[in-house]
Design a protein around this nucleic acid. Structure first.
Lengths: 235, 235
DNA sequence: TATAAAAAGTGATAAATGTCATAAAACTAC
DNA sequence: GTAGTTTTATGACATTTATCACTTTTTATA
């Protein structure tokens, strides 16, 4: 199976439609689109592995990726998902470390590669861009610490409810309250930080309690206020 | 008890001896020391509370602080410790959010307050400074994600061994292999993400197994290789 | 230094969660 | 469409970890 299509992505990409590039000048935007190369990536494709050296970042134009760490016993821990508008892999470039996560395509994606030099250069010449990137990282750090606390203190049940709401926030619901992302039970478990079987059992419970409706990997949220209560989620 | 001494800290502070300020020009350093005000803070003093608005950052000159989040049931989760050379609270300034953690003095400290405006201004005019700050944040994010995975996947026993080694890395051992920080069992539990009783029991086990020696809150590491093995800690 | 308060320690027990085995169902690739 | 693989589901059980109740010890402070 060929998972990367090296044919350039044809549609024009309007860089300015992405928040992160708002502060860039005409020339900078021009330079950026010159050195960017966009490609299609199929589900299952891995962009970079934990521990590898990264030379550039990817801008997600379309599709969904999961960003995860692998524990010492091989179990994945999903750190976050990336969707259109997200920049991935830049952390390692800036910190000058090896990749601390693996990035894998979950929904077929279009990604634009951005050489690391270009990124660091932009940071140096454009303080506004530096600030946006920094803001992004600081927010992510805040979220990471929040989730760290949740995993340390909440029960699996609470965390599962929370994760469902998190997925709702990130990927929205359709007009029928259906979560617009479909994950395997194992992937859900790898977000929640529990065993697959526990997720399966708890999902059935939620279903029995009329909080959700299950249809294979499709999950419909029936009672969001109750999920918020169960997950002890505050706004 | 008066916990903040508003008498200026008399000793001269050599800003250049702190990595984070290396890229600053003469004038910038001068400006910095002009607007910095340094004060003594006693154990127990809280610098800022989770949820409060922060208007500046603190540079730690001396002492130790714990940075923690409070879970919905009131239990603390220690995110990290700050010691001399660390900058605290700047995340919220940059992300323009309310403080997502509380900072409390653990060992009497000398702290220099730095107005937020000054910080954001320095980021704007000095790309090298921006880059250092960014590097710092990105590394912290990497660590946070690492620990998130550990809490999600490792047992309490593994995590306790890991935390002891982490404390060793952060605060060193004396010539007698004694950890150079003393925490209550509850604080250790709040790092590990477990109940105080579990930490107490596991520490006794470690003691029985001749991995550590206990003397009140003083912990001596007797068998570091074995702790590494128990904690599944890689370098 | 006396006294109160906080922390440490211990046992009994309950609850939560993981593991293993196995079967059924749902995908995938040829 | 069918064979093979992966995923989902479920029960039985083991293990880990939390909770509660209480005592002892240590620390802080008036």
């Amino acid at each position: 199976m060929k998972s990367i299509q090296n044919v350039p992505f044809n549609e024009d990409i309007d860089l300015l439609s992405y928040d992160i590039f708002h502060g860039l000048s005409e020339e900078e935007l021009e330079m950026l689109s010159q050195s960017m190369s966009c490609t299609h990536h199929k589900r299952g494709n891995i962009l970079y592995h934990e521990g590898s050296r990264i030379n550039g970042t990817y801008m997600v134009i379309k599709g969904i990726l999961k960003i995860y760490k692998t524990g010492f016993d091989g179990k994945e821990q999903i750190i976050r998902f990336a969707k259109d508008g997200d920049l991935i892999g830049f952390r390692s470039i800036i910190s000058d470390e090896l990749a601390c996560t693996t990035s894998k395509v979950v929904n077929d994606a279009v990604l634009c590669y951005l050489p690391g030099d270009l990124l660091t250069n932009l940071i140096k010449v454009n303080p506004e861009f530096a600030m946006s990137l920094m803001k992004l990282t600081c927010r992510e750090l805040g979220e990471s610490n929040k989730f760290l606390t949740d995993i340390a203190q909440k029960t699996v049940r609470e965390r599962l409810a929370e994760v469902l709401l998190l997925l709702m926030d990130t990927f929205d619901l359709d007009e029928d309250n259906m979560l617009q992302i479909s994950l395997t039970r194992e992937e859900l478990a790898n977000m929640v930080g529990t065993a697959t079987e526990s997720v399966i059992r708890l999902l059935s419970e939620f279903k029995t309690d009329k909080l959700i409706e299950l249809n294979g990997r499709r999950i419909k949220l029936l009672d969001i206020p109750k999920l918020i209560k169960i997950g002890n989620v505050y706004i």
